[in-house]
């Protein structure tokens, strides 16, 4: 009986020892694995320097696309739509596709909306809505020129980016070129807006000076300038893009201003002040 008890005790002791060895073995393996991982990580960090990839800036291409869309709008969207009631309560409509000056409009009194034909002569003004016939020819002409300039600038910018891919310019030069490009975009946007906003203003004046138009026998007149609305939309988009780019460039400049790189290794450090 005593031998059996001793054997049982020995067996239990052996089991406990085995368990301890197993746990220790596991612990050792884990610690070695961790050590290896740490070692390999360090080596990776040292060997593999992650060079920041330069993003292919597609803004130049975007500007070209916007300019092409603008040119399509100028050529294919109707410039002017007039809808009014005559004294006979008959409704008359008129569409114009750009060449308003050379169109043979019937009735001719539509011209009196834009140029005083002395139906009710006023010394103060020639027109009641602030638009002349020349505006219908000059505005699309100038906007076309600006779109051409935009295409040219966009092409130059895309070429610059493509050259940068090969020649690898510094980030500073890219951002400076980018800022000049954004300044041009903003300017182009403002000019297009400024050229076309008078048509939007004409709608406001139409409402304010409605009684004078009624006197010219234009009852319940509706005047819509589809092309200019689209152009105003495009120019506002351009303007917003320009402002966003401006902010991005400034942010980049501020980051760079606050960023200091070490000469020894390829890490860059940011000195953050308590602002």
């Amino acid at each position: 009986m005593i031998d059996e008890e001793e054997e049982a005790e020995k067996e239990s002791e052996n089991k406990e020892e085995k368990k301890i060895y197993k746990t220790k073995d596991q612990m050792l393996d884990e610690s070695f694995k961790q050590a290896e991982i740490l070692k390999t990580d360090k080596s990776k960090k040292v060997d593999k320097y992650i060079s920041p990839k330069k993003p292919f800036i597609k803004i130049g291409a975007l500007i070209i696309i916007i300019a092409i869309i603008g040119l399509i709008i100028i050529n294919y969207v109707p410039f002017l739509y007039i809808n009014y009631e005559t004294s006979d309560t008959s409704i008359k409509q008129y569409f114009s596709y750009g060449d308003f000056k050379n169109d043979l409009i019937e009735p001719e009194k539509i011209y009196s909306l834009f140029e005083s034909t002395c139906i009710d002569c006023s010394d103060n003004s020639d027109s009641y809505i602030g638009l002349t016939i020349n505006d219908f020819t000059d505005t699309p002409k100038f906007t076309i020129y600006i779109f051409y300039i935009m295409i040219f600038i966009g092409a130059i910018f895309t070429i610059f980016i493509l050259v940068d891919k090969k020649k690898n310019f510094s980030e500073n030069t890219i951002t400076i070129v980018h800022t000049i490009f954004t300044a041009f975009i903003i300017l182009a946007g403002i000019i297009i807006l400024f050229l076309n906003i008078k048509f939007l203003s004409a709608n406001l004046l139409q409402k304010l000076n409605n009684s004078f138009l009624f006197a010219l026998d234009f009852n319940k007149i509706q005047m819509l300038y589809f092309m200019t609305y689209f152009l105003i939309m495009i120019s506002t988009i351009l303007f917003i893009i320009g402002l966003i780019l401006m902010k991005l460039n400034l942010n980049k400049a501020v980051d760079k201003f606050n960023l200091l790189s070490s000469e020894n290794n390829n890490l860059r450090y940011k000195y953050r002040s308590k602002i």
Binding site: N124, S125, D135
Partner: peptide, 12 residues
């Protein structure tokens, strides 16, 4: 009669 900038330019 309300005048905007363009109308003022054309006025005598």
């Amino acid at each position: 009669l309300h005048f905007n900038f363009e109308m003022m330019e054309d006025s005598d």
